[in-house]
Design a protein around this nucleic acid. Sequence first.
DNA 1: CGTACGTTTGATCTTTCTCAATAATGGTGG
DNA 2: CCACCATTATTGAGAAAGATCAAACGTACG
Lengths: 265, 265
Amino acid sequence: MTPFQPGALDALVRNLSRHSELSNEDEAAILSLPHTLRTFEEKSFLLREGDHPTVCPILIRGYACRHKVTGGGSRQILSLNIPGDALDFQNLLVEEADHNIQMLTRGEVAKIPVLEISRLIEARPAVAQAIMVATMVESAMFREWTVSVGRRDARSRIAHLLCEFAYRVDSRGLSDGETYELPMNQEELGDATGLTAVHVNRVLKRLEAEGLIARNRRAISFPDRECLAELADFTPRYLHVRDGVSPRLRRAALPSVRDFVAAAC
Amino acid sequence: MTPFQPGALDALVRNLSRHSELSNEDEAAILSLPHTLRTFEEKSFLLREGDHPTVCPILIRGYACRHKVTGGGSRQILSLNIPGDALDFQNLLVEEADHNIQMLTRGEVAKIPVLEISRLIEARPAVAQAIMVATMVESAMFREWTVSVGRRDARSRIAHLLCEFAYRVDSRGLSDGETYELPMNQEELGDATGLTAVHVNRVLKRLEAEGLIARNRRAISFPDRECLAELADFTPRYLHVRDGVSPRLRRAALPSVRDFVAAAC
DNA sequence: CGTACGTTTGATCTTTCTCAATAATGGTGG
DNA sequence: CCACCATTATTGAGAAAGATCAAACGTACG
């Protein structure tokens, strides 16, 4: 457990800035938030249903997910978290957490005392607003996730998850825009999409055979991104990114991405 | 359009008080928020994807839902709204709404200027907190909805929707605790649960044959609530109601409800 | 009384699940 | 380096849940 690791919260700033305008002072205030850094192993829980959280964990490195388990024992993954995500704005204000947060891979987490967050919110309205917006955008992602699970077939569902993951990773500057290391196995992909691992496998093989994705172990790339997005019914409006994705991607953007960027200007 | 209807915002206060502690002054401040009242017909849109909302609509009478439509034209209903719900905290801070809000029945809506909400939030921290909490609880409902659609079979899914609806209506004192007028047809029930109307019909008939529900047109009652909740895998923790439901129901509560209430004390 | 809308029912077809077995893959200890 | 183990991926065959298509039946309402 390392206290006050300078630079650890860069990713959080990059995350919040995607949706909101932050001044240099705002950014500096976030970066200097007191926190402790800790490594968590793959599959370790950061929060369990029923807990009452007292610190706010920020994912610095690695990947995590939110999930709930039904009475029958099956699991539904509700969202993926990538570096820079605040993992617990969702539970901060309620008595008991209603879902679990679990690491998908080994990674590092910065924990900020809730009190410090409260202080920052009071001192800096722009930061308060940015946190609210980030939380709302998270809700928007939950909604789109429901649409996928409820109304898209297995192929679109998986394609949609891949598109969203790639888009989010890109918009935070975490990828080369070519290849994405998917932080989960086919079982977990099934739990995320409401399918079985077996069916996930068949769909992935089909997408591969159709030339829509290329795989090497868990690394995935998209030879024809536009076509995949079309099939996935992926429109990034719900991600509410202010300026679209990185310049590199903006050039070669999907039509829907282009529209979105144009509309946002 | 009637301005300043006194008493119209009672329902909002009742809603916010379910999760947060509000002083008499806080409640008075909410009740005296300037607003206009308007009637909306069944199926009319209160908000469309792409809109930028400038007022905050509060549902006073009648029922509404949030939904998204896929590229293929199918609809996924994401949540039901009942009197007292603020319909648009979710979109207030983002540039473009990412989903639609549509009346399920005829009803009345109070529109509060966003500016007035901002003022109130600045003046009364407890109200700000209550609004945040209500928004978080809404997110929790989105998540549970996803679990239903992703991991429960048709029977449990519909049963779950019925349990949640009844519980929410009860906890806001909008029912006699016996019979519930479901504000939607079987097509809409299908769009909410990710099923077809035909299959919804078959499941309803089956639940009826099993004695788990009784129907008269759209009015539904639950002869064996406990058993239905069991089958639905319904645990109201995610609704984060502070003191459980009305005293009447608390007496005859489901085991899960009872546990929840006990835990909350 | 006819029209529109919603419900109900039957027959058939598809998608996805389940069960089961086999093949890769990566890591471990010897 | 190799044998062994656990985990994950892949494939096949059969079953089941739910979708689709089509028609009939009610009921409210103009």
